[in-house]
């Protein structure tokens, strides 16, 4: 057999990927974040209607390191980050892999506005000339980046109002079909303040009971990061998990166990904020690569 050429020709992008990972670690270390390493196989994920976990001998592969990381926050670790693989069943497309690499970071005593600034600082550290070229489109990274609430985005780009879209179960379809393609292409963008039902682990916005303090970062039309001010009310979190579980059962999906220790320790969680950023998509952006399979060494199909 000759050399696996498909794999061999990935070398430049895999080298760039390694440099990006080193720079991310350097960025967080220099900002006094502790790198943590939590188990990938856990007894229960946060139950979410649209996220299916991969089962592993009665437990599950984590769909995100979120629950263990918040238990660390609750135990007094005030700035933490992690780079780890996560698994989500059935997700495979040009920007999705069922096993993918995620960066998550959490901070105490702040809210989601701090996370938006962290994103600006991190990406500008990775791209020092503050300019990206993505699929023929130059993207100006000079901070501060534009911010748009979900309700502004719907009134600007959607054919139906936000509440109607939610009532008709069209929220995601409209984001994908009408909103994402119309977002400005030459600048990063933060979409923030999501409807409460679209953010099961996020805090309610003070004074707006229907809105959760959740933010999504888009660059070049790619959804790169998702974060929020953390919900730290034990009872409200329990009720939201029960609601997600109820929806799962009604739809005939596999029921999931409740992450009990997480709920118990949530009472100790100080006001905090945390965000997850897809490493593979970040490498796609920085290497100007259209297909996620081209920025990882192996996809499931290669194994």
């Amino acid at each position: 057999m000759e050399v696996n050429w498909r794999l061999a020709k990935k070398r430049p992008v895999l080298e760039q990927r390694a440099r990006i990972l080193q720079q991310i670690r350097a960025f967080f270390s220099s900002n006094n974040f502790l790198e943590v390493d939590t188990p990938h196989r856990i007894p229960a994920n946060a139950p979410e209607f649209y996220i299916d976990a991969v089962a592993s001998e009665g437990w599950f592969l984590h769909t995100s390191p979120e629950l263990c990381m918040k238990r660390l926050l609750a135990a007094g670790y005030e700035r933490i980050f992690q780079i780890c693989h996560c698994w989500r069943a059935g997700e495979e497309g040009h920007k999705h892999l069922p096993e993918y690499n995620m960066l998550e970071w959490y901070r105490c005593h702040c809210d989601y506005h701090q996370l938006m600034q962290d994103c600006e600082d991190l990406i500008c550290r990775l791209c020092e000339n503050r300019l990206l070229h993505w699929q023929g489109q130059p993207i100006d990274l000079t901070p501060p980046w534009p911010r748009l609430t979900l309700s502004e985005a719907f009134s600007r780009y959607s054919p139906v109002p936000l509440r109607t879209a939610l009532a008709n179960n069209q929220f995601d379809l409209i984001i994908d079909r009408d909103i994402e393609p119309q977002l400005p292409a030459d600048r990063p963008l933060f979409l923030y303040d999501y409807p409460l039902e679209q953010a099961s682990l996020a805090r309610r916005k003070p004074g707006s009971p229907d809105v959760a303090e959740r933010v999504e970062l888009y660059i070049g039309g790619l959804e790169l990061a998702n974060g929020f001010s953390e919900l730290n009310d034990q009872n409200e979190q329990r009720q939201r998990f029960e609601q997600e579980e109820k929806l799962r059962r009604q739809a005939g999906k596999t029921p999931y166990p409740t992450p009990q220790k997480f709920l118990d320790e949530l009472a100790q969680l100080p006001p905090s904020a945390g965000i997850a950023l897809g490493i593979d998509r970040l490498v796609m952006l920085m290497s100007d690569t259209h297909q996620i399979e081209d920025v990882v060494s192996f996809t499931p199909g290669d194994l």
Binding site: E48, Y50, I51, G90, E91, E92, G93, H94, K95, H96, N169, F171, D172, L173, I175, D176, R177, E180, Y194, Q198, A199, S200, E216, E223, N226
Partner: peptide
């Protein structure tokens, strides 16, 4: 293509060709 905005619903995006008429169209 498969896509999933945010923590939302999975969307399966297809470009289809009618094999009789040859017509091409997108459907999600």
């Amino acid at each position: 293509d498969f896509t999933k905005p945010g923590k939302g619903q999975a969307l399966y995006k297809c470009k289809l060709r009618n094999m009789i008429t040859g017509a091409l169209f997108d459907r999600t």
